[in-house]
Amino acid sequence: MALSREQVAMRVAQELQDGYYVNLGIGIPTLVANYVPAGIEVMLQSENGLLGMGPYPTEAELDADMINAGKETVTAIKGAAIFSSAESFAMIRGGHVDLTVLGAFEVDQNGNIASWMIPGKLVKGMGGAMDLVAGAMNIVVTMTHADKYGNSKLLQSCTLPLTGVGCVKKIVTDLAVLEVRNGAFHLLERAPGITVEEIQQKTAGKLVVDGEIPEMQFN
C-alpha cells in the first residue's frame, strides 16, 4: 500500500536528530512536527522570523502578530527567538539550519528540484523555497512518487523551471525512501507491501537497487 500523507510525515520524522534546527515547508512537511520521536528535542524555524515555533494557539492565545511562514496563527515555545526576515535568511543562507523538508513537483537524479513554477499556469511565486534549498545543510523532499496519471516525478532531468540545483539529498515518497548521489537515485527502503518492481516502473531517472531493500518501519 502506498503511504498516506501522515505516514510519509512519520517516516520523515525518523530523519530528525536530537538538537536539530529544522525548517518545515507547507503541506506534508508541516505534519512532520506531529511525529517528532520521543526523547529528542528539535527546534522549528519559520522563515518569517521565528526560531522555536510551537503549536497553534488556543482561542485565548490567538494573536494576529504571531504567525508562521504559511501565514497561520501560531505560538512560540519557551526559549524561542523572534527576529527580522534578513536575520532569518542569514540563518538559512549561512547553513545554520540542519534540515529542511519541503515538497516538490519534480526532482532529478542530479539532485535538482522543481517546486514553484508550471509554465502556462499562473505563477504565484517561490516564497522562501529557493533560499532554503540553496542554504540548508540537508534537504529532504516529500512528494508522491508519480502524478495522478502515473507519470514519474523522479526524473533523469527536471522538465519544469528549477528551484535549485544539485541540492536534494533524500526523498521520501508514498512508495519509497531514496538517496540522491553520484547522478542516481539509490533505493533505501520501500513502503510496506510495495515491490521493488513497482518502484522501478515509477522511477524515470536512473535507479540503483543494491541488494535486498527493506520495508519502512513504523512504531
Binding site: Y56, T58, L62, A64
Partner: peptide
C-alpha cells in the same frame, strides 16, 4: 490586524 489564516487548537 486582520488574520489571514486563523488556526486554533482546543485549549
Amino acid at each position: 490586524k486582520r488574520i489571514e489564516r486563523r488556526m486554533v487548537r482546543q485549549g
